[in-house]
Design a protein around this nucleic acid. Structure first.
Length: 418
DNA sequence: TGACGTCAAGATCCG
DNA sequence: CGGATCTTGACGTCA
């Protein structure tokens, strides 16, 4: 089983994606943006490799206006060296990538213009995966689309439009159930007719269930039948409901105990699990560390190095508890570690604890900082302590110091993110 | 006609 | 002027 995340990273330097508004598009601008984004993608792939993350969804925003006439550039050729280099890293590491056009790519619309733009968009996605030199196991996941008061006709339109797609798209296309219109049962029917593999999404299924009641694990087994050996391992999407938001909203983080319950229910299946969650790579690392065969405490220590000041400012008690958990180097208390971590990150921020954590971080600079810098730090502390503001600017200042003094330990810390 | 979802760009405000 | 915060854009469907 591989576990992965979608599109963006949290807390990884130089992995941001840039875009521009349609009215500001120019060739020079596009070339600058594409170059920047490919550089970011390579950094993401490097990060994934260094953190044993083998599953990743590439953002549709990689090439700005990639499916629009606004971008007529032959970017595969212009950036072929960069693309090949990234593709080589993907191939040599055995990483599996995918893409997933959003809710606005609608292949089954009754509007011919919408359909032709959807086809252009799918072609663009295949161009990206082809230009990286990835084989057809690297999929493009797509929703069925709208209903238009006649689901049978809408389904038939989806199928007939799929059959008209360029083979480069068709061989990668994988339909997925959605949370309002097409249940997993309906998508399985469509996938079977198209001989296309089907992605099961657990949260969509919970909100938009099939008439035929089965457990998630059983639906996953049904979907398994649509995956041929040439398609690679069966893929599913896994997410959890954000309890503060409306049904279907993804949670901020994957609650590890809930995930493990699900994991145990599908443990016999050979699955790739794409997480859809706000904290992206952070949850992927969490789930990987709790399920990986290699149970070396060094993976938890690495996590601790990134989380520790965030935990310290939320809960000094949890900080001590995790230090205790990680003391015995022959053990691997991954579940206890992440459970304690989750609880700590949900604790309300107390000013005193936040100042204590800030002073710990300041410890990295107190011997090298100039008199002015010390004064600025104290000013920030006092300003925060006065209670008129959050500790955002205090953290920003500490971040500036970490960059200036190239404190690599701090530069990877989640403390500056949340 | 606005809500839906998503992210960064652009715009505006503030000290 | 820099930094913080608010608004817009880009997409299609549905109530």
């Amino acid at each position: 089983m591989s576990i992965g995340y979608a599109c963006l990273t949290i807390g990884v330097r130089d992995t941001d994606f840039k875009s521009c508004m349609l009215k500001n598009v120019s060739e020079a601008k596009l070339i600058e943006l594409i170059g920047h984004n490919l550089h970011s993608l390579e950094k993401v792939i490097d990060y994934n490799l260094a953190n044993r993350i083998n599953l990743f969804r590439i953002s549709s925003d990689l090439i700005p206006f990639g499916s629009s006439p606004a971008n007529p550039l032959p970017w595969e050729e212009i950036f072929s060296a960069q693309l090949q280099q990234i593709g080589l890293k993907i191939k040599q590491s055995g990483m599996r990538v995918s893409m997933h056009p959003g809710q606005y790519t609608v292949l089954n619309s009754p509007d011919a213009g919408v359909v032709s733009r959807a086809m252009e968009d799918l072609t663009y996605h295949a161009r990206v995966l082809d230009s990286l030199g990835t084989d057809v196991k690297h999929k493009i996941v797509l929703h069925i689309g709208g209903v238009y008061n006649d689901k049978e006709k809408a389904i038939n339109r989806f199928i007939s439009h799929c059959r008209q797609l360029d083979p480069a798209v068709k061989r990668r296309l994988v339909p997925e159930n959605d949370d309002r219109s097409y249940s997993i049962e309906e998508v399985l029917e469509i996938g079977t007719r198209l001989k296309a593999p089907v992605v099961f999404d657990n949260l969509h299924h919970a909100i938009n269930p099939s008439a035929d009641k089965m457990s998630d694990a059983d639906w996953i087994k049904q979907c398994q039948k649509t995956w041929q050996s040439g398609d690679g391992r069966q893929k599913i999407h896994y997410s959890q409901q954000n309890k503060e938001k409306k049904p279907g909203s993804h949670s901020d983080t994957i609650e590890i105990n809930e995930f493990m319950h699900f994991y145990d229910s599908v443990a016999g299946d050979n699955l790739d699990v794409m997480l859809e969650v706000k904290d992206k790579n952070l949850s992927a690392l969490k789930c990987i560390n709790c399920t990986a065969a290699d149970k070396s405490i060094k993976y938890l220590e690495k996590e601790w190095s990134r989380y520790k000041y965030t935990v310290l400012e939320r809960s000094p008690a949890a900080y001590q508890e995790i230090r205790r958990l990680l003391r015995i180097k022959t053990e691997y208390p991954a579940l206890a570690f992440y459970t304690t971590l989750e609880a700590a990150l949900q604790s309300p921020l107390e000013t005193g604890h936040a100042i204590n954590a800030a002073q710990h971080v300041w410890g990295y600079f107190k011997d090298v900082a100039t008199a002015n810098e010390k004064e600025t730090f104290l000013k920030n502390i006092n300003h925060y302590q006065s209670g008129n503001t959050g500790n955002g600017s205090l953290k920003k200042y500490l971040w500036k110091m970490a960059v200036k003094y190239r404190c690599s330990y701090l530069l990877d810390a989640y403390y500056f993110i949340f």
